Computed example of a mutant assay.
Amino acid sequence: MSVAFIGGSDPIRRLLALVERVARTDSTLLITGESGTGKERIARMIHEKSPRGRYPFVPVNCGAIPDGLIESELFGHEKGAFTGAVSQRSGRFELAEGGTLFLDEIGELPLSLQVKLLRVLQEKVYERVGGSQPRKANVRILAATHRNLEQMVREDLFREDLFYRLSVIPVDIPPLRLRVTDISLLLDFFVNRWVEEGRGDPIRFSPEALRRLCLYEWPGNIRELENLVERFLVLKGGETIELSDLPEKILGGTSTGSTSSDGPGNRDTRDAGTSAGRPLDLADLLEGESIDMPAYFLRLERAMIEKALARFSGNKTRAAAFLGINRTTLIEKLKRLEGLPPDHT
């Protein structure tokens, strides 16, 4: 079954157009985006649409493998290479021969392994642990991260030469809060999928509940939305989900990242919603109105941009980084929104 990426918003249309173009090449790609945005799904789409699509797609979560084992996992090892290596073992590069190796959470790769990965990218060869025979790496590498690798480079946590070698073509996935027009499509998709798998009876969302879901910031992105749908199918199967059924964190506009254990970066992000420090909530703009949804989403987008710019004193680079988009994209959005008649926003 081919992989699909659900959405019809402008950011997703641009993303899917880019996927079509880069899939035809053999270039190394760096896929960026917050946790839960669907980085592995995009990687699988690129693989399926590429000339390597009939060969293996091998994912590796670099953050889930202990530092002492990841070299063996990637490159394999010879018998006796280390204590416990009782037989020869193929690594992920061998398993992906002819196809695609997806290195998820590449920012977690130890510096010692970053050097060896750079060599593979440059010379297309590697050795098994404990071996000396060069082996050809006939694979395409797709990497992904939710971390800011440029900042890690500045902090000497990630090699600069590897960063530029990986990011030949950057592919950035927008967070769900910047594609709210896709929420209803995603809800339908997940409901239909769970029902087809026999996990519950169909559910519907009232207009008020849907409106509140569109105001929520979704710190967990698509994964959080999917989990919410599954929960409702189990608990409210066959019913209509009303506003009062939504979790308190959605009703109150708070996010799962609002605990006191968050780092300073997360606290700054939360504070950018309003001057009171709560996440963006536009309910006050909608009191007593019947909702024209296209105009409503434009108002939501404009308000989010204005709040971000106000937070960072008009600095477009910092505002764009907070919103999870490129600076040029922010400038394009500003031009488009400023060109609309007042009654559209």
Rank of each mutant, 00 (worst) to 15 (best):
16 L>S: 08
325 I>S: 10
202 P>S: 06
43 A>R: 05
223 R>S: 06
214 C>W: 07
180 V>F: 00
12 I>P: 09
208 E>F: 03
291 I>T: 09
226 E>V: 01
127 E>V: 09
15 L>P: 02
196 E>Q: 13
41 R>F: 00
60 V>Q: 07
197 E>A: 11
328 T>C: 13
92 R>C: 05
236 K>P: 01
113 L>T: 01
43 A>N: 05
260 S>R: 14
261 S>K: 13
162 L>V: 10
239 E>F: 02
215 L>N: 13
149 L>V: 00
99 G>N: 05
38 G>R: 06
331 I>A: 15
300 L>C: 04
161 D>H: 11
229 V>L: 04
258 S>Q: 15
157 L>Q: 15
109 L>C: 01
111 L>R: 06
271 D>H: 14
273 G>Q: 04
179 R>G: 10
226 E>P: 03
338 E>S: 15
322 F>C: 11
337 L>P: 07
165 R>F: 07
338 E>T: 12
248 E>S: 09
164 Y>T: 11
247 P>R: 06
333 K>E: 12
315 N>W: 11
39 K>N: 00
56 P>K: 11
157 L>P: 00
71 E>K: 05
154 R>I: 08
87 S>G: 13
206 S>V: 03
110 P>C: 05
189 F>W: 07
156 D>A: 13
91 G>S: 00
194 W>P: 02
170 P>R: 06
330 L>C: 12
155 E>G: 01
256 T>A: 12
192 N>S: 14
208 E>Q: 11
112 S>T: 12
7 G>H: 01
162 L>A: 07
93 F>G: 02
17 A>S: 15
152 M>T: 02
188 D>K: 14
99 G>Y: 08
217 E>F: 07
44 R>S: 09
132 S>Y: 08
338 E>D: 15
242 E>K: 00
108 E>N: 04
110 P>S: 03
174 P>T: 10
241 I>F: 02
242 E>W: 02
318 R>W: 11
73 E>A: 08
261 S>I: 10
162 L>F: 11
148 N>Q: 04
92 R>V: 00
316 K>L: 14
265 G>W: 14
283 A>S: 15
131 G>D: 08
230 E>G: 06
39 K>I: 07
246 L>M: 03
204 R>G: 05
259 T>D: 14
336 R>C: 10
305 I>P: 02
15 L>F: 06
224 E>K: 00
149 L>S: 07
138 N>D: 14
318 R>K: 14
322 F>K: 13
118 L>I: 05
123 E>Q: 14
151 Q>G: 12
226 E>G: 02
73 E>V: 09
9 S>W: 08
12 I>Q: 04
22 V>A: 10
85 A>R: 06
304 M>V: 12
90 S>K: 14
260 S>Y: 13
258 S>P: 01
66 P>H: 00
204 R>I: 01
49 K>I: 12
223 R>T: 08
276 A>N: 12
321 A>W: 09
99 G>S: 12
